[in-house]
Simulated scan of single mutants.
Amino acid sequence: MRTTDEHALAALSLAPDPVPVELDLRHALGHVTAAAIRAHADSPPFDNSAMDGFAVRWADVRSATADAPVALALMGESRAGVPFAETLVPGRAIRIMTGAPMPAGADTVVPLEVTSADERAVTIREVRSEGAHVRRRAEDARIGDEVIGSGVELSARHLAAAAAVGAARVAVFRSPRVGILSTGDELAPLGATPAPGQIYESNSVLLDGAVRRAGGIPVLLGPVGDRVDDVVAAIRRDDVDLIVTTGGVSVGAYDVIKAALAGRGAEFMTVAMQPGKPQGLGSVDGMPLLCLPGNPVSVAVSFELFVLPVMRAMRGLPQPLAWSVTTAGAAWSSPAGREQFMPVRWEAGSVAPATGLGAGSHLMARLALADGLARVPADVTDVRVGDSLEFRRFSG
């Protein structure tokens, strides 16, 4: 029987290398940079005003006070997008707006609030310092500066930073396409009336959402029933990078995934964990597969522990995902010899089982109450209030 960490490493070994692509900046949200993003232009691209006010020469206004104001004639104005074309001459001022280019000859901006003005002149009652309220060219970034490093998951603020320095296209890793195949004659589609003995199919809904939240593109390949030929046909795809199956991996007479793939490059084993003990993985005709159990909570836990790290590797993100340390706010039992991954609620700095029914792998409706997973070591059979535990929030 494998440990959870051993199986996670085996799964990670199947991860295809991330594929670099170039995207328009507006399409790059959530992607991971394959190379550093460097400034294509200075930011700001020119000296400009940080305030609405008046562009002046420091030498003309340095003595201005409320008791001894300085009056200057106006030459014109500089607006954002419409700069003043002439050079400021001594003894004059130029009306200027926030973001407008500094006129030639001006070195300081006096804020509107400390002035009085009409159409012809401005009276200045206060000045702060030479160069006040001027944003200098390239004080944010110079051409060629690294603005965003490689291996960074791009957020909206990253995109804005890249846009500010003129990076219209960026090198990122392609989003992995993940095929999702749920199996079982017992599965009824949403919207249908289940036949006797059937249940609503929820695993593909879970994985579809989890893959999207993890930065991938889900591709539904099923569901299919308990027929080997249907499984083999469903995984013969060249438009996905990874296939995740659910169900049919244990020791039952109708465990179709195991029957279909055991001799084709996939291996099946037990992992010392609860829930999610039966697992499978491998490569079939060059396609990496992760074969998860069919019980819905087992699927949720297995995605977090095994599928998510593989997707992160395919996206160019670092490993491993971090667990934090917390304390148990309630007592519960755990199976001997297996790590338990208990769906828990996070409450006031501690965790407690999300349901009074334990870590049952069928309790999908109760899983909605959970914030994440508590990891109980394999040698612990009784969790006590106040015990230290590892905790990780669900990724999606």
Rank of each mutant, 00 (worst) to 15 (best):
A352Q: 15
S78Y: 01
T193H: 05
D67C: 03
A262W: 10
K258F: 07
V376M: 08
G209H: 13
A50E: 13
P45K: 13
D387K: 13
L367I: 09
A163K: 08
S129Q: 13
T115F: 06
A192W: 01
R227D: 11
L74E: 03
L292H: 14
A15E: 08
R38D: 04
V376D: 01
A28H: 04
L88W: 02
L317P: 02
R92I: 00
G372S: 05
R212H: 02
L72M: 06
W346K: 10
G91Q: 03
R128D: 13
V244A: 04
E186S: 01
E304V: 06
H133S: 08
L261Q: 02
D382H: 15
A138D: 05
M342Q: 12
F268L: 03
D379Y: 10
G91C: 00
T193G: 00
G105P: 05
V228T: 11
E339S: 14
A93S: 00
R174T: 00
V89A: 14
P318W: 09
S43V: 14
D208G: 10
R137H: 11
D118P: 02
R92S: 12
A11C: 15
S49I: 07
G349N: 10
D185T: 01
H362L: 15
Y200C: 00
A104E: 09
A100G: 01
D47S: 10
A368D: 10
Q198S: 00
G191M: 04
N295S: 14
M97D: 11
S155C: 05
L181R: 02
S129R: 15
R345T: 10
D239H: 09
Q279I: 12
A354F: 14
S395Q: 13
G215A: 04
T3Y: 07
G247K: 10
G30S: 13
R95T: 04
D241L: 08
D230W: 12
P318S: 09
V325L: 14
P353D: 00
T98L: 09
P288E: 08
L23P: 05
Y254G: 00
L317K: 07
T245F: 07
G349T: 06
N295T: 08
P194Q: 02
T33N: 04
P318M: 07
F391T: 01
K258A: 07
E6H: 04
A160G: 02
